[in-house]
Simulated scan of single mutants.
Amino acid sequence: MPIVHIELLEGRTQEQKNEMVKEVTEAIVRTTGAKEEAVSIVISDMSKGNYAVGGKTLVQK
């Protein structure tokens, strides 16, 4: 049973997430032979204030 965890920065629409889930599921099924109903996907939306690069959060200027 494949379990996929995806972390995204906030701001994607539900439609974008739905399409991503569809395509990721198809890729997992195609490459592993798993049944579609066995694929689980967990999406975590992160606030830009909770993600940092180079010592600065994405909300810092």
Rank of each mutant, 00 (worst) to 15 (best):
K48T: 09
A34D: 10
E19Q: 12
M46F: 10
G33H: 09
M1Y: 00
E26S: 15
K48N: 12
T13A: 07
K56E: 14
V39C: 01
I41W: 03
V53K: 11
I28M: 12
K35G: 13
E23R: 15
V59K: 07
I43T: 01
K35A: 15
S40N: 05
A27D: 03
G33P: 10
K22G: 01
Q16C: 06
R30V: 00
R12E: 01
I28C: 10
S47V: 08
V39R: 01
V21W: 04
T13H: 06
V21E: 08
K61Y: 11
G11E: 05
E23F: 01
Q16A: 12
I3D: 01
T32H: 07
H5F: 09
S44Q: 14
M20P: 04
Q14S: 13
T25G: 00
S44G: 11
G33V: 10
A52T: 05
K35M: 13
R30M: 08
T32Q: 02
S40P: 00
M20V: 08
V53C: 09
M1A: 01
G11I: 02
I41M: 04
L58E: 10
K56R: 15
M20K: 08
V59L: 12
T57D: 08
A38V: 01
E36R: 15
I3C: 05
Q16E: 14
L9E: 03
A52K: 05
G49M: 09
Q16V: 07
I6K: 10
K17I: 12
A27R: 09
I43L: 14
I41R: 05
R12M: 02
A27E: 08
K61Q: 10
E37W: 10
T32N: 04
A27C: 12
T57W: 07
K17E: 06
S47P: 13
A27P: 04
H5S: 11
E7V: 02
K48I: 04
I28S: 03
S44A: 11
E26W: 08
N50M: 09
E36S: 14
I43G: 01
M1G: 04
Q60G: 04
T13M: 06
R30H: 08
G49E: 15
V42G: 06
E23P: 00
Q16D: 09
E15V: 15
T32F: 06
D45G: 09
V39H: 02
N18L: 10
T32G: 05
E10R: 11
I43N: 01
K61S: 11
I43D: 00
V39M: 02
N18T: 14
Q14R: 15
Q14G: 14
E10H: 08
K35V: 07
A27F: 07
T31L: 15
Y51M: 12
I43K: 02
D45L: 11
H5V: 01
E15W: 07
V24S: 03
M20L: 15
S40L: 00
P2S: 04
S40I: 02
K56A: 14
G55F: 07
Q60D: 15
Q14A: 15
T13D: 01
L9R: 13
I6A: 11
E7P: 00
G11C: 04
L58G: 07
L9Y: 10
M20W: 02
M46S: 03
T31F: 12
N50A: 10
I28K: 04
R12Y: 02
L8K: 09
D45W: 03
E36A: 14
E10K: 12
K56L: 12
A38G: 03
